[in-house]
Write a protein that binds this DNA or RNA. Sequence first.
DNA 1: CAAGAAAAGTGCGTGCACGCAAGTTTGCGT
DNA 2: ACGCAAACTTGCGTGCACGCACTTTTCTTG
Lengths: 230, 230
Amino acid sequence: MTTPPPGLRERKKQATREALREAALRLAMERGPDQVRVEDIAEAAGVSPRTYNNYFASREQAIVSAVTADRESRIATAVAAQPAGVRLADAVTEAVVEQYTKTGERKHEVLLLITTRTALRDAFLDTTADIEPPLTAVIAERLGDAGAHTARVLAASVAAAVRIALESWLRPAEGAEAAGSFGAGGLVVPSGSLRDQLREALAPLAPAFDAAERRTQPSSQPNGHPLDKR
Amino acid sequence: MTTPPPGLRERKKQATREALREAALRLAMERGPDQVRVEDIAEAAGVSPRTYNNYFASREQAIVSAVTADRESRIATAVAAQPAGVRLADAVTEAVVEQYTKTGERKHEVLLLITTRTALRDAFLDTTADIEPPLTAVIAERLGDAGAHTARVLAASVAAAVRIALESWLRPAEGAEAAGSFGAGGLVVPSGSLRDQLREALAPLAPAFDAAERRTQPSSQPNGHPLDKR
DNA sequence: CAAGAAAAGTGCGTGCACGCAAGTTTGCGT
DNA sequence: ACGCAAACTTGCGTGCACGCACTTTTCTTG
């Protein structure tokens, strides 16, 4: 409905983007990530370097996007696909966990590559911001027009939480540095599975979702037990 | 206590940083922001271009940092300075609003400059991430060791909310584009004062703070009326 | 189906970020 | 007071991001 026939223009565009993605990833895997110049990626994809640059603002983005692909749209539909009765908080949590967990075999070995370079790691973490717009849309849909503002904030918070979860998951406990007055952190969390990290990061936001949801439909109370562990 | 005498080394370093900040801002104000090359800033500050680059990762950062300065530390202390009895949510909100509102006359004219260039605008918005570590620290302090994880998520959410508030404040209603299924947004909010934008963006997070706070001190209920409008 | 408008691709030039390997300054132990 | 080690500065070189002007391709409309 939204895309009758995408048109040749758009198809070519996506094809080029895909080719660049693939080329970037493949070359990065073959040689090290540092041994891949933009020129190589462009050539492998059959476009000029300048064109490559119209698709990706940085070399890291190109490589990482091969893993990230169309996560944004997947998340949105995943939320919408949740049964109508569940709490909004649970719907979002489930959708997010599902999308970040259901990783093909190939992806996992790519993540190893990504963690080896700080620039790549950062670029990967930055992609969490991409889920914000679609999340805003679905949340806003459930909150109604009055909650548009709230929806944006909640979506952004979710993105932030996901980022944190990925951060502490990707980091096998580095030396103690920056933030505040924590110990080495060894006690805080033994760096469990990604699944757990995500749930734990999203849990604190649940009350905010509940409150927002309550403000729009004070009558129909969604069932609150499918995932509530308390 | 934390800084007996800072030592010559550190003082010089801060002096250089300050000089760069000031030079960058001054030059950007005199000519347009686009007419300032890194070379100029470095020369005006009396260091080599390469050294400039050891302090700032981008030209935009240097300019923006003149406005941002030590906001991070101010926020942390502002939260800590709040009366002990108030809800954590209120303490944070007040501290944040205060810090982003108490803007000198000079700052306001700088903000006008910043909004003129997208790159500067983005750099400015990115600085909201800097408040995250100090916020994490103070929040963690009030939540106790058990809530360290929660503290990080909440701090990140606050940072995200602030970013959103600043975004919609800096943008006098552009044409409708990206996100989801909203109208032109003219109805949603008439783009009130920054103060209001901040409060509105932070409000949805209050329930999350309350819940977190409740989990650590189920007994002593903080007074909940100083700012609660509902 | 033939222009003409709109959009994508391309070549070129400029300023920049950043690694590396010196040189220089500051701090500290003895 | 001296001198070594660590921190900061700097020059150089490389690859890159991106604006601009222009060509080529695709979409639209009469």
